[in-house]
């Protein structure tokens, strides 16, 4: 019986005067691979970033594997958790960014090891073994001692994914990880993600890669203007969209 890994209820976020998320409800089961699509400004990236508290949110709750993320909510009172608590919770998820954000002054292996050593308090030797294992998994064991400046975009992104997943997160978050890559490098990254999906990792991906969303996701969420407009099996949704906005979106995007 699959358990609920992530539960989002009534998520609200305002940015100054502008309400970016207007009450989002979403439930993610363990092992699901969910693609979040939508035009820019729809709130999809913001929602993703709320899950690991890279963005604050003003209303609603997010619950990861049973624990409340970011805020203590009791009735009508709401208190932000301590920085220490939030840091601990962030380690339960892994995130890969559009701009990779590798630490340029560390080798690929050191990038992957940093979290293991500092957050999981592992001894260096053990961290090294795990780092090498994951770098091998993404196909970069030959580059373990290279610096990010010596790697191509696709290689950097694969290291970034290894860095996130080496922390054994409960949930992986991907924020448009192929948007900044040259087209010929996109494939190698998608391959890695497909492999992780096949291994049963629970994943949320914000993506523009419609083909990928169609082939690999168990569910697709279409967001529009801060709410979930439509969601379901991509094989159904993309062929027979139920809402007009989704139909519009599919027409303008590079699918089929």
């Amino acid at each position: 019986m699959a358990k609920t890994m992530l539960e989002i209820k009534g998520l609200r976020k305002t940015y100054g005067q502008h309400e970016v998320l207007k009450g989002v409800d979403c439930s993610v089961q363990e092992g699901e691979v969910i693609s979040i699509i939508g035009s820019s400004g729809s709130g999809k990236t913001t929602m993703l970033r709320c899950v690991n508290m890279l963005e604050e949110f003003q209303g609603g709750t997010i619950s990861l594997d049973g624990e409340e993320i970011g805020y203590h909510v009791q009735g009508s009172t709401r208190r932000r958790k301590t920085e220490k608590e939030i840091a601990r919770q962030r380690a339960l998820t892994g995130m890969a960014f559009q701009q990779f954000n590798l630490f340029p002054h560390m080798t690929a292996a050191q990038n992957v090891m940093l979290g293991l050593i500092k957050v999981k308090k592992m001894p260096k030797a053990e961290a090294r073994l795990i780092a090498e294992r994951w770098l091998d998994r993404v196909g970069l064991s030959a580059r373990a001692n290279h610096y990010p400046g010596q790697l191509s975009g696709g290689q950097q992104q694969r290291v970034a994914i290894a860095r996130a997943i080496a922390m054994s997160p409960r949930l992986m978050l991907f924020d448009e990880v192929t948007s900044a890559l040259d087209p010929e490098l996109v494939g190698e990254v998608l391959q890695v993600i497909k492999g992780l999906a096949a291994d049963g990792m629970t994943m949320l991906l914000v993506t523009h890669e419609m083909r990928f969303a169609y082939e690999v996701s168990s569910r697709v969420i279409f967001m529009n203007q801060g709410v979930i407009c439509e969601q379901g099996d991509p094989k159904e949704m993309f062929v027979r969209p139920k809402t007009e906005r989704l139909a519009e979106f599919l027409k303008t995007s590079s699918f089929n």
Binding site: N52, M53, L54, A87, R88, R90, A91, L92, T93, G94, M95, F97, N101, L102, F103, L114, G115, K118, V119, A160, R163, A164, M167
Partner: peptide, 8 residues
Amino acid sequence: EAAKAIGL
């Protein structure tokens, strides 16, 4: 952000 994401 990347540092935060791994829990530092």
